[in-house]
Design a binder for these strands. Structure first.
Lengths: 145, 145
DNA sequence: CCGAGACTATCAGAGCACTGATAGTGTGCC
DNA sequence: GGCACACTATCAGTGCTCTGATAGTCTCGG
């Protein structure tokens, strides 16, 4: 079995576990992430910036923020420096819900690494980053160079 | 940054890379997987069995097989042992397309592990499986017991 | 000044993935 | 025999993700 299969499997299981943890709050995993980033950011993001941070396309983030907006967890403000840019901001209700969701999130993360020593965690993380780099940096792109 | 984030990121990047590799064939990543499993299986699967193997729900697999079916890459046969079960089978066209898709798939897998020694690959795989087990086996599920 | 390029937002459409619900079938227990 | 349970297929609805396309705005260079 190829390594990629295991990566996919772990991610699926992880997402399922988080979705389960967030069920009570009504948040989805991407919604949680967007809210988390927004709450942590000093000056708030535009949808396009948020999309880049969360590694999705602006169109996808638009879907996510539309759902958060409909639930009143975030709000949009017209930027005063760029007349067209819409700045996103977590509402008090959003922050409050996030508070309630975090324990579940952290519990899943804790479960993920429960079988690892601190050293192994570091090594695991290093492996993930190295694999990511290998896929991101085009090493086999001498073809067109 | 939490470890889960890196897992998600790697999976997203991996899927994107595979999607890119399959673009020429018109296959999506889930379609490729379903076709691969179907082609490799001695006696062919029902949609429900295939769903379990690919780790998706039967409803999801139904969507995937509908698209494969529409492209003529697989076919459905009524099982002769169970009157209601529909057995799936890759068509010659499906097998032929799979042949064309495999090099790209393998290239991405090769890229994924390109920065690893054989030992590290084994360790990486072991880490992934260990994390998977930690999430799957319910260690904190005494709540409802 | 004006046009090119970069960035923003947003619509449209396809595919994947889930939950929930409905219905048919097949096995096995009472 | 008949009922319950398990498994199959499938419809309906929601949400995430992508590509492609359209349009507004801003900056910078000629």
């Amino acid at each position: 079995m190829q390594l990629g299969m295991f990566v996919r499997r772990l991610e699926q299981t992880l997402t399922a576990a988080k979705a389960d943890a967030f069920r009570e709050t009504g948040l989805t995993v991407p919604q949680h992430l967007a809210l988390l980033v927004l709450a942590a950011s000093p000056n708030n993001f535009s949808a396009a910036q948020l999309a880049r941070v969360c590694l999705v396309t602006p169109q996808t983030m638009s879907t996510i923020t539309a759902n958060l907006l409909a639930k009143g967890l975030i709000e949009k403000h017209r930027s005063d420096v760029h007349s067209q840019v819409l700045v996103l901001k977590a509402t008090p209700a959003g922050l409050e819900l996030l508070e309630r969701a975090e324990p579940g999130n952290l519990a899943v993360e804790a479960r993920l690494i429960s079988g690892f020593t601190t050293e192994e965690q570091e090594k695991f993380r290093e492996f993930l980053i190295r694999a990511l780099s290998a896929l991101t940096d085009p090493p086999g792109s001498q073809t067109e160079a």
